[in-house]
C-alpha cells in the first residue's frame, strides 16, 4: 500500500544541509501495525509527514495504493490526505473554540458531506469513543485522554486506510496512554493500517513491525 523509494528530505540550515530523511526505502502493506522508534532528530516525524502527504520529499518516489502521489498538485494531495490518511498528534491539535462534536465533524465539513449524514456519523463516533457526555464541551473542558479520544475520532471519521500517530501518548500519563493505545489497536484490528512514532520502548514493542531510525536512515526493520 505504501511504497517509498529513495525518499530524501533535506533542510537548509545556513550553509549546511540537514538530511532529515536520507534515501529512505520503505514498504508497508495494508493493515500492518508499525512502530517507528529512534533518537530525537532522527527523522521519524518527517517520515510520517511525508507518508501523510503533509510534506514533500526533495527527491525519491512515493506510491500510495499503486499511484505515484509525489507528482500530485497541492489540492489533489489534500484530497488524498482527507480520504486515506488520519493524523493523530502528540499535542491533540483540537480547534479550541469548537466543541468536541464540532471538532470531530470538521473532516466531514471539509469533505462536503451533507449535514444530515454528518450528524449520524458524528453521533456514532461519539458513541464509539465514549464521548457522548462530552459532545458539547470545548477542548479546554476536557481531560488529556478525552482530548486524544476526540482527536482519534476526528482522524477516523472518514474511515481512512491508514492512521499516522506521532507520539499519541506523549502528553498522557501511563494509564490513560494505555487506554488510547487500546483504541488505536482496535482500529488496527478492524483493518486499518497503523503507523506510530513513539519514544516508549514498551509501547513500541506492541507493534508487529518495529522500525528503528537514526540520522535520517532506517537502521533496523524487524517483524
Amino acid at each position: 500500500m505504501i511504497h517509498l523509494a529513495e525518499i530524501t528530505r533535506k533542510f537548509q540550515m545556513g550553509d549546511q544541509a540537514v538530511y532529515a530523511l536520507d534515501k529512505v526505502d520503505l514498504n508497508i502493506a495494508a493493515g500492518e501495525y508499525v512502530s517507528i522508534m529512534g533518537p530525537s532528530g532522527s527523522g521519524k516525524s518527517t517520515l510520517l509527514n511525508i507518508i501523510g502527504l503533509l510534506d514533500r520529499p526533495d527527491s525519491g518516489c512515493y506510491e500510495l495504493d499503486g499511484k505515484n502521489v509525489t507528482e500530485l498538485s497541492e489540492t489533489e494531495q489534500a484530497r488524498v490526505r482527507r480520504k486515506k490518511i488520519g493524523f493523530v498528534f502528540q499535542a491533540f491539535h483540537l480547534v479550541p473554540r469548537l466543541t468536541a462534536a464540532e471538532n470531530i465533524e470538521l473532516p466531514l465539513i471539509l469533505n462536503g458531506t451533507p449535514p444530515v449524514e454528518r450528524q449520524t456519523l458524528v453521533a456514532e463516533a461519539l458513541q464509539a469513543f465514549d464521548l457522548q457526555s462530552r459532545a458539547q464541551h470545548r477542548p479546554a473542558e476536557l481531560s488529556g485522554g478525552q482530548r486524544q479520544r476526540v482527536a482519534i475520532a476526528r482522524a477516523t471519521i472518514l474511515q481512512p486506510s491508514a492512521i499516522l500517530a506521532d507520539e499519541p501518548t506523549g502528553n498522557l500519563d501511563h494509564v490513560i496512554g494505555a487506554e488510547v493505545m487500546m483504541l488505536l489497536e482496535n482500529l488496527h484490528h478492524a483493518g486499518t493500517t497503523l503507523i506510530m512514532v513513539t519514544h516508549d520502548r514498551e509501547l513500541g514493542a506492541r507493534a508487529r513491525r518495529h522500525i528503528g531510525m537514526r540520522d535520517g536512515k532506517i537502521v533496523t526493520d524487524v517483524s
Binding site: R79, R81, F87, A91, H93, R154, A155
Partner: peptide
C-alpha cells in the same frame, strides 16, 4: 497558525 496546520492535516487545501 496551529489550527491552519491542523485543517491542512485533515484535508483542507489552500483554497479552503
Amino acid at each position: 497558525t496551529a489550527e491552519i496546520g491542523l485543517l491542512k492535516a485533515i484535508g483542507a487545501d489552500a483554497a479552503d
